[in-house]
Design a binder for these strands. Sequence first.
DNA 1: GCAAAAGTGTTAATCGTACACCCATGC
DNA 2: GCATGGGTGTACGATTAACACTTTTGC
Lengths: 244, 244
Amino acid sequence: MSESHPVPARFPVTVDVVGLTVIDGALHVLLITRLIEPFRGGLALPGGFVLAGEDLVTAAGRELVEETGVEHVPGHLEQLGSYGPQGRDPRGDVLTVAHLLLAPNFPVLSAGSDAEQAAWYPVSRILSGEVRLAFDHERILGDALERAKSKLEYSPLGAAFCGEEFTIAQLRAVYEAVWGTRLDPRNFHRKATGTPGFLEDTGRMTAGDAGRPAALFRLADAARPLAGRPSRAVLNPPLMRPRV
Amino acid sequence: MSESHPVPARFPVTVDVVGLTVIDGALHVLLITRLIEPFRGGLALPGGFVLAGEDLVTAAGRELVEETGVEHVPGHLEQLGSYGPQGRDPRGDVLTVAHLLLAPNFPVLSAGSDAEQAAWYPVSRILSGEVRLAFDHERILGDALERAKSKLEYSPLGAAFCGEEFTIAQLRAVYEAVWGTRLDPRNFHRKATGTPGFLEDTGRMTAGDAGRPAALFRLADAARPLAGRPSRAVLNPPLMRPRV
DNA sequence: GCAAAAGTGTTAATCGTACACCCATGC
DNA sequence: GCATGGGTGTACGATTAACACTTTTGC
């Protein structure tokens, strides 16, 4: 914060959003198809420039809403980290502040031909190299996945992937998709319902599915985000992912 | 990363460093006394503007070296998070990327009267409110402390607070200072030495201190930072801090 | 010898894991 | 009835936590 003798450089600052969701048991990421150079026609994370008067998370939420046509930010949005400004955009130095969105599967607006089209892509297709991302967005995605994995361990944010009410099996599917492992349904049930301050039984049940109806849960009040501030609640003890 | 219709704003970008060390069993933070407005005469985190052509961690390391007179970055430096650009500097919008330094106690240069004086301050005096920090630096310090606490759990970075060689008791003092708890020396010894890929016995011993001489350890090769890239090694199983 | 700190042994409680088993529904 | 998935009980090994005890130094 001290003033150095050299004139401070000013940088264009963008926000990018790594939007993750679970569709049919597989982790998906929200990507847009670029309509302009560089990387025209390529896939990239949604994002855009921070405007004067905006805060970082605000800007990230605005870009997300603009590029998907969703009404509100549909899940948990938090800062991931900053990248740059060197060597990440062929047009020049751009600092980007990446954000992580954990959200239930929400429908993405079908944009007209003049807008960038956002859509969900299976993360596995990027990790396998089958699909490539523009800029340094593969690196950012990698960091986001690592963050998401550890978030599930010690925070109640796995529930951010589910809707308002969900079954333990739906929650388990989230953990399995993000961690890339299978979990014992019975032990997971006990651990999830037994963790204090995590889940709250709604008293309601599913109906119509195969098998025995499942109890519907919601996030406990203690674990909910409060008045705009995202939840900082901690899962204690943590739900540990199997280590190799 | 998409181009919005509004002209992208350009922001001055600073890097700040939360430098932590353990002195006499107490956690200390590196602060400078500001010589200019705003907050002239107040205490703040060391930092400064990112220059053209610089990367973030590079800039943070440069500012640290400049403001303390130390030769090299003396420990583990990593990005913490970004703050702003709104409402954190009375002179206008400034985006800052905060960094976390975990370092052994190193002597700070006594600056001349025309330079900002850096010095170590007990963290407890800031947390108690006895000492106030400029800008939003108290919030940044709070986030840094939280990050440091969790880093000790699942990474070998506790050793970054020690010198090249250290005893288990010195390492335990680090954990106790950062976590603010007492740990059983005997169980900690077993846990630290028994964690694979963490510590390596040097074969050397301390001498001259009270009590039985202690074996000197160093970070295992697997846990060392390699070729500039900071260590991403993971402690498995983690050293768990006592939960209240 | 005595104090002090390092390091080892031991034990009980707790936790994770695996898996047998019962429950409640759709068909 | 049978398949399907929800949910509980239980047993065993691993890990933690508490603390007795031995070792090795300085004084």
